[in-house]
């Protein structure tokens, strides 16, 4: 049987779109069985994407990472995080909301897959995989935390202000569950992000001549790290729960999106996707 890169890519996108339609459709129509089917399709898309990585279809690994590859890896880690929450906490909603995000990231990646950034030899080492891997895992955790936090704030506001929770909102996880998801994301995201940043800073000296070169990406990343450290500390030491960590995680995720979509594409940085 012929398995091509193109066929796999389109199959993954198809599964992600079907998972989005069934997941959100089931959620809105309050049909658990349909929503669960969406989650199963999401799991299939994840397995396919993982297989495609192992089969080396991800061309971008050969000479560096393209903007498309970045987005696909981000989608993969987001799907992984959603799957973990589905299987461990029995929360379909996390995966249901991860599905459209993954589908959008995957679809957006396709036009940019061929724009491979040829990395300097100094960056073509295992440290680079470590750097990217840890940062993208934490980015995926931030994405899931963003979804959980947004839902938490929305539902909390309704409960506090005594507004009725109608329709599909009745099937959303309880506030405590959303807060637990947020907590787990923060507790795993901060150490992973720290390793990602440290691996980058340590490698920066031999490559760019300085540990910190004032690159816009480095500045934004350090701000994100500081915010993560702040929320991580407060969750553990000051027993932060509920609204405050939710609002902080929303800010952190939006800043990370700014870093990925604006700094990497529009600003002059040695992390720029436009470099050739």
């Amino acid at each position: 049987m012929m398995i091509s890169h193109e066929l796999t890519t389109w199959s993954i996108l198809l599964f992600l779109l079907a998972a989005t339609i069934l997941g959100l459709g089931g959620l809105l129509a309050r049909k658990i069985s349909i929503q669960t089917k969406g989650c199963v399709l999401m799991a299939i898309a994840f397995v396919l994407q993982t297989t495609s990585f192992f089969l080396g279809f991800h061309k971008s690994f050969q000479g560096g990472l393209s903007a498309g590859a970045y987005l696909q890896i981000f989608a993969w880690f987001t799907a992984l995080t959603g799957l973990i929450f589905w299987l461990k906490l029995k929360q379909r909603t996390a995966l249901t909301f991860a599905a459209p995000l993954c589908a959008a990231l995957f679809a957006m990646s396709l036009p940019y897959m061929e724009q491979t950034i040829v990395l300097p030899k100094t960056l073509q080492s295992s440290f680079y995989i470590l750097h990217i891997g840890f940062l993208f895992t934490s980015l995926a955790l931030m994405a899931v935390s963003f979804i959980a936090s947004s839902l938490f704030l929305f539902l909390e506001r309704r409960i506090k202000s005594k507004q009725r929770i109608k329709g599909f909102l009745q099937d959303m996880p309880a506030l405590s569950v959303l807060d637990t998801i947020n907590k787990l994301c923060i507790l795993t995201c901060f150490p992973l992000y720290t390793i990602g940043i440290l691996s980058g800073l340590l490698r920066s000296k031999p490559v760019y001549g300085a540990t910190f070169s004032g690159d816009p990406k480095e500045i934004v990343s350090l701000i994100i790290w500081a915010l993560l450290a702040f929320v991580f500390h407060n969750r553990l030491a000051a027993a932060w729960a509920g609204k405050k960590p939710a609002m902080t995680m929303i800010c952190i995720f939006l800043l990370s999106l700014f870093s990925l979509l604006i700094v990497n594409t529009l600003m002059d940085s040695h992390h720029s996707f436009t470099a050739n």
């Binding site: 539902l155 409960i159 929770i165 996880p173 309880a174 506030l175 405590s176 569950v177």
Partner: peptide, 9 residues
């Protein structure tokens, strides 16, 4: 029911 919306299980 409200308690369940806040605490879940």
């Amino acid at each position: 029911e409200l308690a369940k919306r806040i605490f879940g299980d």
